[in-house]
Design a protein around this nucleic acid. Sequence first.
DNA 1: TTCTAGACTTGCGTTCACCGGG
DNA 2: CCCGGTGAACGCAAGTCTAGAA
Length: 917
Amino acid sequence: MVDDIDEDDVPLVFKRSNTTSKQNQPTLEAKKSSSQKHGGQTGKLVSDVRTSNGQSSSAQKIKTVPSTKASPVKSPMSSSKASTLPRKASPVRSPVTSTVKSPMTSPKTSISPGKASPVKSPLTSLKASTSSADQSKNSSQQNAATVVKEEKRSTNADDSEDSEDDKPLSARLSAGLTKGNSNHANKGLSTSIEGSPSVIKPKIAKYEDSDDEKPLSSKFQAKSNAGPSTSKSYESDKDKPLASRFNQNGSINRDNQLKKSSMMSSKRPPGEAKSSSQSLVKKPKLSDASTPSYSKQASVKAETKTDDDDHVPISQRIKKSATSGSKTSSAQQKVAKPVSSSFKQTSKKSKKVIKKSKYSKSSKVLPSSGEGQKWTTLVHNGVIFPPPYKPHGVKMLYKGQPVVLMPEQEEVATMFAVMLDTDYMSKPKFKENFMTDWKKILGKNHVIQKLEDCDFTPIYEWHQREKEKKKQMSSEEKKALKEEKLKLEEKYMWAIVDGVKEKVGNFRVEPPGLFRGRGEHPKMGKLKKRIRPKDITINIGKAAPIPECPIPGESWKEIRHDNTVTWLAFWNDPINPKEFKYVFLAASSALKGQSDKEKYEKARLLKDYIHGIREAYTKNFVSKDPTKRQIAVATYLIDKLALRAGNEKDDDEADTVGCCTLKVENVEPKPPNVLKFDFLGKDSIRYHNEVEVEIPVFKAIQQFRSGKKGCDDLFDELDTSKLNAHLKELMPGLTAKVFRTYNASITLDDMLSKETKGGDVAEKVVVYQHANKEVAIICNHQRSVSKSHSAQMLRLDEKIDELKGALEELKTDLSRAKKGKPPLKSADGKPKRNMNPEALERKIAQTTGKIEKMERDKETKEDLKTVALGTSKINYLDPRITVAWCKRHEVPIEKIFNKSLLAKFAWSMDVDPSFRF
DNA sequence: TTCTAGACTTGCGTTCACCGGG
DNA sequence: CCCGGTGAACGCAAGTCTAGAA
């Protein structure tokens, strides 16, 4: 399809200034400057909100509570990178936001032994690319060069970068426009944007050609002059998503109400797309791979069916399967294999096919194919229920006196007691809701009337003892328990969809408990009642046997045979009966994989339209039609800052917002052209960022705010359905969330291509993690700081100081040794062994290296303490970008994807090494 | 056109399992 | 052999978006 314009497409990366950019940027000033030219138009981020750590000031701390998580950050990257960029980088970055600061560090991770073994190399080889080594080297080198440049730009530049980035779209667009022409035309959508109808398409076409293909930045440059804003230096920016550029300041913090604080900066992305023609075309895989992914999977599964294996390490899986018995083996293997083989595939495939055994249906067409029809035959065993409540008989106290409770009453009291050490205890709403529901069970005349007079500690302590007991069990006992559980659940773990055995996602019915809403949820603490068979609707193939109800004497609510949906069962949410809880297939299933692939294809399609879309909304910033103006500005924010759409919410939900539901008080204009965003988004995660925007956007926001109160809607003419209806006119199937996927993936693709230089696998992994982090920042994916984070940092400091002390001592010894004197006694007065100067020098070098590594690790840890890398990897980054990059650079895919991801992305494993998003 | 039921994706926190170091 | 630290797996809350009814 498209031609390849790859280059173009590339990227724009948006970097958000801070983070990433920082890192890279170290040097970049030069570039910046260029970029800066643009000037202001774009939005750069102004401030950096994030503090270095990421926490933003305000927000920062708030969260404490929740976090319990043990391990805070992992440190992904590190060393290598560092190496590359001199450490300096770090310093630089740090300033701004923490996040950004240091790139990653810890090499170790990357290398990790574990999985690697099996597959690793294969990939590379497969790629065929050519001789690997050499090629890679070359490429790497090349990259390096490029990289360097970039870095420079970015570096500090955050701002500058940002600016460019900021400029982003608009700028780009404009530029593009100016250029005009591109050919592209691609698709022709018909769209007209609001006012300007058809415009888009045409434009698009044009851009694409030239511009699109190239990264924005490049485009810009070329054009640069063109638009006002635009011109700015896109270069750097372009690449990065707008967001990134913006971020600079941004710190995002989650505040969750109070607690969390995190700060990351925000970022936003702008990105552009590149088009790649190929992509469309995509070639199938190298080797045999040709088989469509799905088909593969299917086949695979059938044969091997490794499903289980998924869990198991790749290498092991195979064995296991063998060992394990029947079904598992068969089913499981499949999944796993793809992975392991990394790219080999061929062989596998063949094998798989062969086996298939009972289920195979390789042929099956993918689900989506049929209109609306998701499957033809569906067999499964229903769901499993949690065990009934076992009364413990421990008495809580009321006004100091033990109280006897009926089992149902005790059950609810225990739910509360178990949460005594959580933050929820400091939330009045939680206690109030709990008490209201508990009282219903206690009855009106129960002695227990007020929560304040209750003392749940006896139950809490009993629970702690039980936990401790469990922990103390011997490993054999634990293993036995586990096996017993597995035996019980096995039959529920699998479904057979069109003849293929697939894993079921969540076959366990949720146990009763107290609702743990995030943020200031009005329903927190309410009793989530026990779900019974009569609450559950089962969906299954007509020919399949109806699952037996696991609870004797009870029966399912309803049996359906609807093949236009993918759920196997559902029940109404006890907290909000209007909503449902579904049982779906696992992420590794073909059904999910297919829809995942479609999601990324749609995002890639946006690449071909993005120029025109940006151009159109830029034009509409000054539209006379207020609705059009709001749509234009909202689209700009979604594109540049990666904001979510923002559906309307009910009063009985936490008060969070997205783009369409932003309130006047959430966006503060700071002349001349900076917008300060501060609001709680999904999961009550704070989005706090200051961004430079184009003047028309700034003016439009000021106008939208005028005459309104702080709590009024900023976009009073808009809602998500209007916005999406408009987006659909621009590109088939386009919705607000596609921009997030697009910007995330294009950023990864761009950063990987620019920053992958030579180096060993560990260094390349660091590059990947760096890119991953950038995306996480753009999408504002945060995590709370682990409770033990500060203690861990202190411990690291101590170790570093200790090493430094040892280093000094070694140096003293060395100078004495050179003079032929014996070493001084150690601090504790003991004499030390007499070492020769060479040995001492070796030891000094060793210690120095250790210190440097620890410092890098520490920096990375601090840097990532509030950034969650997993969410973007699972949901926003097209796995084909990663797989192709691994093949091109001979990085074992297992270094990047864990077992779950390998299974989930089985459909992408045979991508051509030349694939670009 | 608006509202709402319905279906599915996204996302953070917790728990689990494992691993290397003392 | 215990233990802290960690990544993976799990759990479930909270979004997005569509389609059809009102």
